[in-house]
């Protein structure tokens, strides 16, 4: 704020300098005296005081935000860690094949609705773009499903033609499985895919988040892969109970896998968001504190200087009077 004041002052001063080109030619000393603040002996501390006040307020806000993020993190962390049990059996059964080569990929980018949480959204977008480049090619198609306001805003700039769905306000109520499963259902109904690649930030600790890609394959692709062998080759050794075909089972499984993986991903991402916000707010309140220290120092110095000047003036005036007697 104070900088803006200075800038405004500067703009007002500029034409007055430009209007007197002779002053510059005359002599540097005399022009300095003229441009200096006339009639003011000490510098006003008003600007610094205002700035200190605003920095203090900002520090208060960031501290409060840190507290809020910390308490929210604690609530969501346990649930995120518990939800890891949901996708693990699927990975054991179907494997995770991020490198699979398919025609239609859909990249699901998870991000937060609100900002001020470090780089988690931009990393998610970066990874999604990398996936786009990796998977696009002749006869190959990549589309985006964007979850969260922030990734939407970034993706809108350069890949808006590839977005098929966007989802926001997911975090309004506390996250729950029913909500995420309905979302997963909507995504399944609205996009055609051979592989869904979910990009999110996996929560490691309050300061460490790993951008992660989870791949969910469509039932046809799983079937094809298991016939070829490789990682999914063991799938045929499972017995199927009841009168269902393998295709039906796989379709049910793939759908359920997607909703489970989404649930975990959404929770992990929310957790990372809170962690990132916490550390971002922590460092910004620390920065505000440092800035406040520096400003206080400047303020006190200026104050002291003006007091000293005044004292000198009084003393010298008094001694002049003494000498006159």
């Amino acid at each position: 704020m104070a900088m803006a004041v200075f800038r405004r002052e500067g703009r007002r001063l500029l034409p007055s300098i430009a209007a007197r080109p002779i002053a510059a030619i005359r002599s540097p000393l005399s022009s300095d005296q003229e441009e200096g603040l006339l009639g003011i002996r000490s510098i006003s501390t008003q600007v610094v005081r205002n700035r200190m006040k605003s920095v203090k307020n900002i520090q208060k806000i960031t501290k409060a935000m840190k507290m809020v993020a910390a308490s929210k993190l604690r609530a969501v962390q346990g649930r995120a860690e518990n939800s890891r049990g949901l996708w693990q059996p699927f990975t054991a059964l179907l494997g995770d094949n991020p490198s699979i080569d398919v025609k239609k990929s859909v990249v699901v980018t998870l991000s937060s609705d609100k900002g001020l949480c470090g780089g988690i959204n931009s990393t998610a977008v970066k990874v999604s773009r990398a996936l786009y480049k990796l998977n696009s090619g002749p006869e190959k198609e990549v589309q985006f499903v964007v979850v969260g306001e922030k990734a939407k805003a970034i993706m809108f700039r350069d890949s808006k033609n590839d977005i098929v769905l966007s989802v926001t306000e997911l975090n309004k109520n506390p996250l729950n499985y029913a909500q995420v499963s309905v979302l997963a259902d909507d995504i399944l109904k609205n996009v055609e895919f051979d592989a869904l690649r979910i990009v999110y930030n996996k929560f490691h600790s309050v300061v460490a988040f790993l951008p992660t890609v989870s791949t969910v394959l469509s039932p046809e692709i799983i079937e094809k892969e298991s016939e070829v062998g490789g990682k999914l080759g063991e799938l045929d050794s499972y017995e199927i109970e009841g009168g269902e075909t393998k295709g039906e089972i796989l379709q049910n499984l793939a759908e359920f896998q997607f909703s489970c993986v989404m649930f975990n991903a959404v929770l992990e991402n929310a957790c990372s968001e809170m962690g990132a916000r916490m550390s971002a707010m922590d460092s910004s309140s620390r920065n505000a504190g440092e800035m406040l220290d520096r400003l206080t120092l400047t303020y006190n110095r200026t104050r002291q200087a003006s007091i000293t000047t005044e004292l000198i003036e009084i003393i010298s005036g008094a001694s002049a009077l003494e000498a006159a007697k």
């Binding site: 808006k160 977005i163 098929v164 769905l165 966007s166 989802v167 926001t168 306000e169 997911l170 309004k172 109520n173 729950n176 499985y177 029913a178 909500q179 309905v182 979302l183 909507d186 609205n190």
Partner: peptide, 10 residues
């Protein structure tokens, strides 16, 4: 188990 989100197709 409240469900709330905004979905828009592009």
């Amino acid at each position: 188990e409240k469900v709330h989100f905004n979905l828009s197709k592009w």
